[in-house]
Structure formats: C-alpha cells, structure tokens
C-alpha cells in the first residue's frame, strides 16, 4: 500500500514526547548526572567520573559487597518464585473447569489477589504471620513449629516467597488458562482416538500450545519479582539482618537512608541496565518463537 508522506504527523507525537521527556527522560538524566558526581551536601557537587560504578562493581568494596549480595538474593528470590509459580499456575489452569457457570466463579476468585495493592498484601501477611496475633504465625507455633519471621531468616524468606506465590500465581494460571482455552476440542478428541495418556496430552498438545503465554508469564513474573519492593519491605523491612534485603530495598536505603546520591544513582543505572538486557533477551526469544510459526505457510 502506498502511503502519502506527511511530516506534519510528527506534531501529533509531540505531546507524548513532551510528557515522556518530563516523566522519564529528564529524571533519568538527573540520575545519570548524580551517578558521575559526589557531594558533601550544601548543594555542592564534584566530578567523580566512573568512580561510583567502579566501586559498585568491585565486590571487595562496601558498596559492591552490598550490591552483589542483594543482587544474589534477588535472583534467588526470582528463581524460587518462578520455580513455584509457573508449574503451580499450569496445574491450577489445568484443574480449572472449561465449561459452565463455575468458569466465571473461578476466574473471579483467581483475579482477587491480583486486585489487592502491594502494600495491603504486605500488611495482610505481616499480620497473618505474627506469632502473637496472626492466624498463621499463632497456628504454626501452636503446632510446635518455631516460626518467627522477624528473627529467623529462613522463616522470613518462606513468608515472603509464600506471599508472592499467593499474590501472583493467579496471573500465571489465568494466562495459561487463556492458552488452554484456545486449543480446539478436536485436539483432545484426536488425542483420545490416538490413545494418548494424560501426560502425552499435556506434553504433545497443551504445553506446546501454552508456550507463548508461558513466556509472557515468565517475563512478567521475572520483571516484577526482580523489582519487588513494597511487599517484603512492609513484611520484613529487609530483615532479619539483611537476609531479605533485595536490590530495590538496598537502593532505597542508600538513596534515602544514607542520602548517598552518587552511589544510589550508579546502582539505579546498573539495575536498570540489567532489566533492559533481560527484557531484550526475552523479546528476542519471543519474536523468534513467533517467527517459527509465521514461516509456516499452512498455519491458520
């Protein structure tokens, strides 16, 4: 199709560009500006070059040590919740009814945790887990399990992980359910005719048909869990010790607690880069998976 070239169209993009400039580009430039300077307060800044970055990426320095430790915790956290939420979400999606009024009921129930704001989720679990007044904490201790997320690092991790699973498994399940719903009945009937076992139906039909939504689910959950801040901050405040201090919590401590703007800015930029790189990798993988299908002339 021939399109007329009309440069005036750029004016239509201008308002968006202006908004993005104020909301994203300018703040980001400020961060870049801070990351190459040092200050002793009084609004006096000194050029520091890549000093903060060097320190940040040097594990033997205090900043580097804190950065790498929180990064490792964060990656471990993401890995754990993905390892739980993805298989669990698939199982839940498979168990959901496919016809009838129960479908709507299930969808609503599944969507409920997703509608709750992060800090409320944190508060719910913070109280739920308290050994003195929380139902969970009190019951566990009543059963003879010594559970206290304030003093025990393992308990703190378990609480944060279970909270995230409670909050976000629905998302994975709903995405998988959408993928499953798109499979025509003929596939199941054919599999039945072909004598496929339940497992064979899963591996030969359901999983391949779900693989694109699963990629999206993994991407969303990875991004979200990698940037997680509010929920663990409300529940554990990063403790006990530093055991649940993830990168974002560390960042806030440095930026607002110690007011080390240069260090925090350098950390922000590196944090941001990691996220962009991961996004790029996922995007490549996803478009590649899509191209696989588009090359196929017969596909509908």
């Amino acid at each position: 199709m021939d399109k007329t070239v009309n440069q005036k169209a750029w004016f239509l993009v201008l308002p968006v560009f202006a908004i993005v400039a104020f909301s994203a580009i300018l703040p980001l430039m400020t961060v870049v500006n801070y990351s190459v300077q040092d200050t002793f307060g009084n609004n006096q800044f000194f050029w520091n070059g890549v000093g903060w970055f060097k320190e940040l990426l040097d594990p033997s320095s205090d900043l580097g040590e804190r950065f790498f430790a929180s990064l490792a915790r964060n990656l471990a956290f993401s890995a754990i919740i993905l390892a739980i939420e993805v298989p669990l979400g698939i199982v839940v999606a498979l168990a959901m009814p496919r016809h009838g009024w129960t479908v709507a009921l299930c969808l609503v129930i599944m969507a409920l945790p997703l509608l709750i704001p992060w800090n409320v989720v944190g508060t719910i679990w913070q109280i739920f887990g308290r050994p003195d007044i929380g139902l969970l904490g009190y019951s566990l201790n009543g059963l003879g399990i010594d559970y206290n997320y304030v003093s025990n690092a393992f308990d703190a991790w378990a609480t944060v992980v279970v909270m995230d699973v409670w909050h976000w498994t629905s998302l994975v399940a709903l995405l998988c359910y959408a993928g499953l719903k798109s499979i025509p009945d003929a596939y199941y009937q054919a599999a039945q005719i072909d004598g496929a076992s339940r497992w064979a139906v899963f591996t030969a039909i359901q999983l391949p048909k779900m693989h694109r939504v699963l990629l999206i689910a993994v991407l969303l959950r990875f991004m979200d869990s990698f940037m997680i801040y509010t929920e663990p901050f409300v529940v554990t405040g990063g403790g006990p010790g530093n055991s649940t201090t993830f990168v974002s919590i560390e960042l806030v401590k440095i930026a607002l607690g110690q007011f080390d703007l240069g260090k925090a800015a350098a950390l922000s930029i590196v944090y941001n880069l990691i996220i962009i790189i991961v996004c790029w990798v996922f995007y490549t993988v996803m478009t590649h998976a899509g191209a696989d299908r588009d090359n196929n002339p017969g596909s509908a």
């Binding site: 025509p184 003929a186 596939y187 009937q189 054919a190 005719i193 072909d194 004598g195 496929a196 076992s197 064979a200 591996t203 030969a204 039909i205 391949p208 048909k209």
Partner: peptide, 26 residues
C-alpha cells in the same frame, strides 16, 4: 477406533514421522 477430523490435528512439537507413529507408540 480410529477417527479423522474435519480440520487437521497435528502435534506441533513432533516431526511428521513422530506424528504418524504417535497412535502406535501410545
């Protein structure tokens, strides 16, 4: 019973040969 449907049903992850072998393998 064997049944062939109106629209093609194929197992995406398998090769043509594996598709044909599927009912026997099961």
């Amino acid at each position: 019973i064997a049944q062939v449907f109106q629209f093609p049903v194929i197992y995406d992850t398998m090769t043509v040969g594996q598709n044909l072998a599927f009912p026997l393998k099961n």
